[in-house]
Design a protein around this nucleic acid. Structure first.
Lengths: 331, 331
DNA sequence: CTGAAAGCGCTTACAG
DNA sequence: CTGAAAGCGCTTACAG
């Protein structure tokens, strides 16, 4: 590459210390010298080497983020929120894809630690989080997002999945809806379990009948949403009020509907967790329990930066953000 | 943080040079010393500081990627391809969001350069790319993805949008389809222009009549796909064979269909660029011109690493990957 | 096969 | 206000 602080110093006839001070906006520098140095900086097109800077300052101004899937809109929306906030504060972000494996998640964290990131945001891939302890060992701040984890204490930002689902269900029940069905995620997934509990609790609270065959679990991906929707819709008495536990299973369900609309009971109503592009295109009435996705990311970033800056109050702090209900009518 | 190569050296009774050689798998080290060092490494839980390593070795083993939107599935699929390949080769990736602005793209590149990335992959936000020259100035390899740019020469990986669209159109025309419509992207967007040209060329080649009101342009986002679809479907004689120029506009179009299915001519057929989750749920017959999205990412990464490793043959190399046609029937 | 030593490009007490 | 100098944690010729 090339031009270093030394070159600038020589050209400007000052010491490297002075150049360093100028580029770091140290205020006890004569306007005159500052001008001179800056001119040379731009003439030589000098760019600071942040690697060298980090080695000295022990701060990389970089934050790591580990996600279970990198091409998942939900996680990337969170990442956008994170990046927005970090960008405002002069930090940047390394994203690593754990590909839904605890082992790769561990490798990702190790990599980030070796890269000397100042802190780590992780959306855990699996329920167990004991491997995350190495982040604490490295004394690096960490914030969990979307999911909590067993065997590992940490700050976290997420929503109250159980309460949100519970309240949506109560409203539906109290509005007179019956014949419920549930398309959930594997209960090993933290949010899937919470959402299922909310569903269940409302059913029990109001003592509403529930056909056990109408409760089924998939893997949070589109295909299983399709398959389970198919199974439910093709059962002898299909459910009429469906709670679908996440966005991707919901789009799988919509996909089924788009092919087999004639099989669908006219009274069908679909409630779903998450509200994104496709949440409203099912063509059947429904509602979405919307998470403040961007805000989750921003809050996680904000909390992490506070920890990085040394704030250690109220640890661990679990922040539950509010959801809200969006209803989808059809034309 | 803590334990450095010095601590390991002291504990193991060797020099730091030896420790360095062990952790870098230098082969001229006695198995005995190697063992001893390794034991101390794991006992002290030593982790290499890659910042220090990079400063010395002048290689960060990190690649930067600049995308126009970070929560865009298409770009993130490309990113997944990139990351997959990089991961295999021991590299990691910093993703920066240019938020569709040339200015922020420039800032992103500058940031990456300051972070001493070994190379940069950019999906350009805008048509002009003169600001990218600073990558060449910094002697860093760069690969463009998905779009070419004016005023900047570079390796690139993309598909032949014009040819792909042209051939799909020719097939449709030759299969007897008529009454065409086109929902395109702003022609300032590289791919939008190419796709429009392919459409146009087929129409002219076969001398097929085309109602100019049936050709319209939006911004590649869902909302404009919805709006344009609405406009077309509500025109006096709606088109019956539609070419939609990208995925997001297509989902906007599908959205319109899901609300106003009764307005849709029964003979409607929709061809679209890209094939992702939702490309097949329109409920009307159609086809997708599928780009090998992951492969685009992998190839871009591979080309970049080759350049990083010093291969400078056939520069600039524009690699056009093949597309293929997927047809969507309805049930 | 191993070590002493220089140096990567910065920052920052410490002096003055 | 500015500079000389040490040092961040590594790697790597150069010796031996």
């Amino acid at each position: 590459m090339g031009v270093t602080i030394k070159d600038v110093a020589r050209e400007a006839g000052v010491s490297t210390a002075t150049v360093s001070r100028v580029i770091n906006n140290d205020n006890r520098i004569t306007p005159a010298t500052r001008q001179r140095v800056l001119r040379v900086v731009s003439r030589l097109n000098y760019k600071v080497n942040t690697i060298a800077r980090s080695l000295k300052s022990k701060r990389s101004l970089t934050v790591g983020m580990v996600v279970p899937e990198i091409d998942n809109v939900f996680f990337m929306r969170v990442a956008r929120g994170v990046e927005d906030h970090l960008g405002e504060k002069g930090y940047s972000m390394i994203v690593v894809n754990a590909r839904e494996s605890r082992l790769r998640e561990e490798g990702a964290v190790e990599l980030l630690l070796e890269k000397q990131v100042d802190g780590i945001i992780v959306v855990p891939s699996e329920r167990d989080g004991s491997h995350l302890k190495m982040i604490h060992d490295a004394q690096a701040p960490v914030v969990l997002v979307d999911r909590l984890v067993e065997g590992f204490q940490s700050d976290a930002v997420l929503v109250d999945n159980e309460e949100a689902t519970f309240h949506a269900m109560m409203d539906l029940i109290d509005a007179g809806r019956r014949n419920f069905g549930f398309i959930g995620g594997f209960r090993e997934i933290f949010t899937a379990e919470e959402r299922y509990r909310g569903f269940r609790r409302a059913i029990e609270e109001r003592n509403v009948p529930l056909n056990p065959d109408h409760v089924c679990f998939g893997d949070y991906h589109m295909e299983s949403g399709y398959d389970l929707m198919k199974r439910l819709m093709e059962s002898r008495v299909p459910p009429e009020t469906l709670m679908v536990a996440n966005y991707f299973m919901h789009i799988g369900a919509i996909r089924y509907l788009s092919f087999y609309r004639h099989r669908v009971p006219p009274s069908l109503f679909i409630a779903t967790f998450d509200n994104m592009e496709f949440s409203s295109v099912s063509g059947v009435p429904g509602l979405s329990i919307a998470q403040p996705i961007d805000e989750i990311g921003r809050q996680a970033a904000a909390m992490l930066l506070r920890r990085i800056e040394g704030d250690s109050s109220e640890w661990p702090r679990i922040q539950r953000l509010p959801t809200n209900i969006i209803s989808h009518d059809t034309a």
